[in-house]
């Protein structure tokens, strides 16, 4: 599941606009397997956190109702070009991923 994440951070006025695409199935636990008729167990990202230069800016908790391959966009005031943005997530099965980008 350690597929790459995509992060893009660009300055818009005095704020950095940060966009993140994560690779995740985001299984709800309500869907049935077409062949076996068994419920597919839930598998989704539960926590997401974002840091700018090591300082936390966003901490999110998600349910299974966030779409597959989730998109997250947010803005941080006071960030500057060259700042390092780190975004990481953890899911309900204990899988984790993290990626970073430099504000352009």
């Amino acid at each position: 599941m350690a597929e790459p994440m995509k992060i893009r951070a660009t300055m818009e006025g005095d704020a950095a606009n940060i966009k993140v695409l994560m690779n995740h199935v985001m299984e709800t636990g309500q869907r049935k397997d077409a062949k076996t008729g068994q419920l597919i167990p839930a598998h989704f990202i539960q926590t997401v956190s974002a840091h700018v230069n090591g300082k936390p800016v966003l901490e999110a908790q998600w349910s299974q109702a966030v779409s597959k391959n989730p998109f997250l966009g947010f803005k941080v005031k006071g960030a500057k070009a060259g700042d390092k943005v780190t975004v990481s997530w953890a899911d309900n099965k204990g899988e984790k991923n993290s990626a970073d980008a430099v504000v352009a």
């Binding site: 966009k19 985001m26 974002a50 300082k55 800016v57 998109f71 941080v76 960030a79």
Partner: peptide
């Protein structure tokens, strides 16, 4: 949101 994060989020939901 903290440390300068603006009151803005964008995502996709089911």
């Amino acid at each position: 949101l903290m440390n300068g994060a603006e009151g803005y989020v964008s995502t996709r939901i089911k």
